[in-house]
Design a protein around this nucleic acid. Structure first.
Lengths: 133, 133
DNA sequence: TTAAAATACGACTTTTTAGGTCTTATTTTG
DNA sequence: CAAAATAAGACCTAAAAAGTCGTATTTTAA
């Protein structure tokens, strides 16, 4: 299965929402209510985006989030890695799982799978979040 | 997450194995033992491939499988659809799930997601199983 | 004609991942 | 200091992937 998770969808929706608000600071609550996204889940996604400087945050009662990068500087691949971590299309190509595969010896398709991964990755790398606006 | 399932991996491995045996008939057991794939699971994958004429089968004690199509006629996208069914990268783009999404009204990213899907699909459609040999 | 070995098929169980919640801290403003 | 926001981690639940079990059917050959 080739799919984007809800978290990625929510991140894209939120980024678009924040972008539409220009330089105003918006709260997680505001976003989740407007876009119909579970509040706490969104909060954690936004925190991950903040860690990678995709968003900037302000704490406290007047706090919230605003963009930390321009949308055309954020690739879909970077967004996915920020939220989901290392993105191998199969386990044995994930950097943190290498050597775990019990098929290593009998596997006859590793190189070509790698090629597919490279090509999909290229698509995701060339797709910018700004394309979603 | 963008990933291929084990089933797809197993299918690719099996197809390569069968292809390497030229026109000899090979049994599921033989494949699973040589490639270290759970027997029953492989058996069901092979049956799906058979239903789409990717493989031909012979029943009975001298039975087994052989190729029903040339590997360069089988695209990765067709293989995925054969094994996993309809492949939308997000639920709302799956043909059997349209209208189920509770975000329909607030969703602000449907069209661009559709574009990403189209591009990934293109990669998978242009990648033939023969590229895996 | 029956035993063995293969495919065929559906129900079931287990494991893993995704999705979502709860709780508690910390920060900031009025 | 109360209120409302971010911050963070543990936890729970639901869904999907991965794998198993049981049984029927087909075919060959002794």
């Amino acid at each position: 299965m080739v799919r984007l998770t809800k978290k990625i969808e929510y991140a894209l929706m939120a980024l678009k929402y924040i972008s539409d608000e220009c330089d105003k600071i918006v709260t997680a609550k505001q976003i989740s209510e407007n876009l119909n996204i579970p509040n706490q889940l969104l909060a954690k996604i936004l925190q991950k985006l903040k860690k990678e400087k995709i968003l900037e945050s302000v704490q406290g009662i007047k706090g919230g989030y605003k963009l930390g990068k321009k949308l055309n500087e954020i690739s879909l691949s970077f967004l996915i890695e920020t939220i989901e971590g290392d993105m191998g299309i199969v386990d044995c190509l994930k950097t943190d799982r290498q050597g775990e595969c019990c098929q290593t010896d009998s596997c006859n398709i590793k190189d070509p799978i790698n090629q597919v991964q490279t090509e999909i990755y290229k698509v995701l790398k060339n797709k910018m979040v700004s394309d979603f606006v």
